[in-house]
Design a protein around this nucleic acid. Structure first.
Lengths: 200, 200, 200, 200
DNA sequence: GATGAATGAGAATTCATTCAT
DNA sequence: GATGAATGAATTCTCATTCAT
């Protein structure tokens, strides 16, 4: 399944040959069919497997955190990047994106198992900030959640598509970008409102 | 080429059959080969065609703008969404993302023709804001540019992948999300710095 | 379809390779798939084609016959052998027999299109004989029909199975056998009752 | 071997999977290869086994029979149907018929072990009838034998091919058909020559 | 210029056979 | 003896590409 994930992510489902998956996995084509009844089922298994891994991350980090919500968001993003973004599993996002329309049930599954829980996690985080008076109460929670998440996902997508093709990646330091992105969202871009002592 | 774009975006390059492109275009398969020597060349033509369209947007909007940079960013994003995000051309991002690793020269081309100019445009915008004292001078320009752009791209990607498969899309109003996203980056999330009368 | 019939009859459906059919037909494999969507559909087309040919024989011969029913039966059998038994179409019986259980709808089709009409034809013939006082009225019409028909079918089956494998076929002269078989059924085996009152 | 016989008869040799044979026999695939070196050898073993069973029937019944030859033929047919036609062994005829051309040595074997002895048996029976003045001396012995045997074989073939696919079989009572068939051959179809001196 | 029938290389899938346990 | 996981050759089916009309 690791071999399949790699190749599906790199080449796309249709362009990946079963022989290549088998070869990379170090088994014969026949063996693959011993465990997965078809190429399509292999895809589904790969996705199910990787999503279940992905999902388990998250909630425990949040539960007992003590510090400010700003710190918490940095921590959550950092942990996610470490456990997902930097691993092979980061490819799953490209795979889903690529194959969603060809296998709509995958999209359903991904929505239920990743998008929904993910949105809920971030939304709760934001709510925590609002409740504690750290964040503006006028925030649109869902939109804000997307502003947080989307760039992180783009990092994963980029890593598995254009990234490897370019000599100088678009960001030479993803961790720095993530920290900066979150800080940016928290503080905003605009210059300090003049004489006010300081905010962050 | 419109037919090809649609299908390439929907199914991916490998999973798209020349017959289907021909059928959707209302011509025969032979006719397609009259104009494009191979499926791969068709792909490249489709991408070149749509990128050249994409790129022309932009710089003219910026050049003579008079208002605040915050306003300018809202305008740029709005125009871009209107001319790219809402049109068929929005699919090109998914296509590039999907096929970049299979056709590395496409990635090069896209980098040179879209990424670089795009980054330059936004970077200049941000610099304008800094120069005019509107934005913090401590901003990392490139990272900030990415924070602005990535969610817009995700909107396009989503629209052509998981979006059509879900009953309730992740955002029912992309324009509102875009406005909110840019406002968010500008103002930041954090609560008003105490008694200060207003910030925005 | 002739090529397919030959090979299906000779080797059986499962043991026949599409490549071989194509080669014998003098076209490429691809061309075959241009006209028949799958091997199974090719089988069905072959059978439908040959059955429609088979069925058209028959009734016209019977309609306006003037002579004795005994003569008529000889004529019917002779014509059938000439038009079916001696042609390539004779193989269809082996094919049906072989594949009926794998493709039950074929069996249905064959029953409706061949068995039923065939039985009706022969039954009517026998009835004609009874009506004209030529045949015993105590005959079981359907059983008798089968006694007539079965050996002719066996001739076809044999011709396409064991026949070609034996140096001396089981019958060196099918026409003579058919004539003899029908005469036998008509007259019976038992010695002339000469002066004796009755035998049965 | 029973499992193999069943499946070979039902599906044909090529369409039968070794896995299925093993599964039905309740052993593993490997075990099958412990006893039969290849699928083909399994086929041959199945056929040899069942033919040897088939052949042993017969001669002893005939040897010491005392009654009329007409009665004897009914007895022979009845016993054969009971011991072969009604058992699983009846499938062997379909199997031979189906596979003869793919395995010509099977055909040879079958000819030597079944056809020849069978023909000889019936021929001797008919000769007995002629010798005893029961049957016409003008009979063509071999043709007549075939007229006797073929319909019985067709019954077996039908039972394992089209029969199971039809709701109303072609004959709801095989024993009655057999009795009728033999009676028919003995007496003939034609009406009693009443008092008339002769008919032939 | 346009067509669509024909091609055949290539990919997914099957299944008889092997062999380490 | 028995097993069943592993194999890969063989087979069905697909589809980009060609070319005569």
């Amino acid at each position: 399944m690791d071999a399949a994930l790699d190749l599906f992510v790199e080449k796309g489902f249709a362009a990946t040959k079963i022989d290549d998956v088998a070869a990379r996995a170090g088994v014969s084509k026949g063996t693959l069919y011993l465990y997965f009844p078809s190429k399509e089922e292999l895809l589904k298994a790969v996705i199910r497997h990787n999503l279940s891994l992905t999902i388990e991350q998250g909630d425990d980090v949040v539960a007992n955190f003590e510090g400010s919500t700003a710190e918490l968001m940095q921590v959550v993003a950092g942990v996610w990047w470490e456990r997902v973004g930097e691993t092979q599993a980061s490819g799953i996002f490209k795979l889903i994106l690529t194959e969603a329309r060809n296998f709509p049930d995958l999209a359903q599954f991904y929505d239920a198992e990743v998008i929904e829980p993910g949105q809920r996690l971030i939304t709760r985080l934001l709510q925590r900030g609002v409740d504690r008076g750290e964040f503006r109460p006028t925030l649109h929670l869902l939109d804000t959640a997307h502003s947080f998440i989307f760039p992180l996902l783009m990092l994963c997508l980029h890593k598995h598509s254009i990234g490897p093709c370019l000599v100088h990646g678009l960001t030479n330091d993803p961790r720095r970008f993530i920290a900066h992105h979150i800080e940016l969202l928290l503080k905003g871009v605009t210059a300090e409102p003049v004489p006010a002592p300081g905010t962050s």
